[in-house]
């Protein structure tokens, strides 16, 4: 009678250790997310470090030419940054108004059935690979612009890809903004209606301000997508570094420079090889900056109910 409990507990250590082992394995899997971030930062900084041993930071930031692979090499990142900002700017001019209006419509005006049909369709469209959008920019939107409003537009330009990226990120912007508006409690709308406001007045002056925090998050998501977008611009904007703020000209972005270099066969450890890591570091810092600004704006506009 006395040794029965003892024999029952005798195999407990094994079971106990198995549980501990499983927990450790699961923890390592989860911790891999931290390892990936550390690895990304470490590799970008390590290779950029070698790059900045050859190139001064002042040249990098002030030179207006980017020609690391030419014999007369210049290492000014500004042309690539300008290209990135112009294509993203065009994209936002398309995506922000269109995405916001769609979000307000779906959240405040659309009948239930319309919303239930449109949401999955938008979700589906968000899954279309970006290389396909590159095809549209090169062979549909640019020729369309040339045939209608801009006859002098060159075949490679930043306007066409910018517009296409804009259309591409509309689903992201509208679906995240709509979620934010739907999260505004019903009694706030009812309060507004009770004061005699119409649907439009309520949407514009009550729901939208209350959901600003989430809408800003949607815009930041859109900006991140546009800045990091590669294939649309690589296909349709010409891949030549060109310091200009004019969207009607061809230019390269940070991402297309990386793609262009990777398509060739650069020896490991050369300055050209290191330059794509320096470019990648700038890209990562830009997305980080937008996200920090977004975070601060979100905090500024956050409303608690």
């Amino acid at each position: 009678m006395t040794d029965q409990p003892a024999s029952r507990f005798a195999h407990r250590p094994l079971r106990h250790w198995r549980e501990r082992l499983i927990e450790s394995v699961l923890f390592l899997a989860a911790f891999s997310a931290v390892m990936i971030t550390v690895a990304i930062i470490a590799i970008l900084i390590y290779e950029s470090w070698s790059f900045f041993e050859h190139v001064s930071l002042k040249d990098f930031l002030t030179d207006t030419q980017w020609t690391p692979l030419f014999s007369d090499a210049h290492y000014g990142i500004m042309p690539l940054v300008a290209g990135t900002l112009v294509t993203s700017g065009v994209a936002l001019l398309v995506a922000v108004p269109l995405g916001t209006v769609i979000a307000i419509y779906l959240s405040e005006f659309a009948p239930h059935t319309v919303r239930e049909t449109v949401k999955p369709v938008l979700e589906l469209l968000a899954g279309v690979p970006t290389i396909v959008f590159g095809y549209f920019a090169l062979l549909f939107v640019t020729p369309l612009l040339q045939a209608t409003v801009l006859p002098n537009l060159p075949g490679f330009n930043m306007l066409g890809p910018g517009i296409v990226i804009g259309i591409m990120i509309v689903p992201y912007v509208s679906s995240v903004s709509e979620d934010a508006m739907r999260a505004v409690p019903m009694h706030i709308r009812e309060g507004s209606y009770a004061m005699g406001a119409t649907r439009f007045q309520t949407a514009l002056r009550v729901v939208t301000p209350a959901a600003t925090s989430g809408i800003v998050a949607a815009y930041i998501l859109g900006i991140s997508r546009a800045v990091g977008e590669t294939m649309v611009v690589a296909v349709a904007a010409g891949q030549q570094p060109n310091f200009t703020w004019n969207p009607m000209e061809p230019a390269a972005t940070i991402t297309t420079y990386i793609v262009q270099v990777s398509l060739g066969d650069l020896p490991h450890g050369s300055i050209g090889y290191q330059s794509i890591f320096a470019a990648g570091l700038v890209l990562l810092l830009m997305t980080l900056l937008f996200n920090i600004v977004g975070h601060l704006l979100r905090k500024r506009f956050r409303q608690a109910y």
């Binding site: 997310a33 590799i43 290779e47 977008e229 590669t230 990648g280 890209l283 996200n291």
Partner: peptide
């Protein structure tokens, strides 16, 4: 804080441009 760190990293990784993963893979 370890859990918080992991969660922050998971959500940040989702926002890293895909080409940066390419650079990580090229080096690693």
């Amino acid at each position: 804080w370890v859990t918080d760190l992991i969660e922050i990293n998971v959500s940040n990784l989702a926002g890293v441009p895909s080409i940066v993963y390419g650079l990580l893979a090229l080096g690693l």
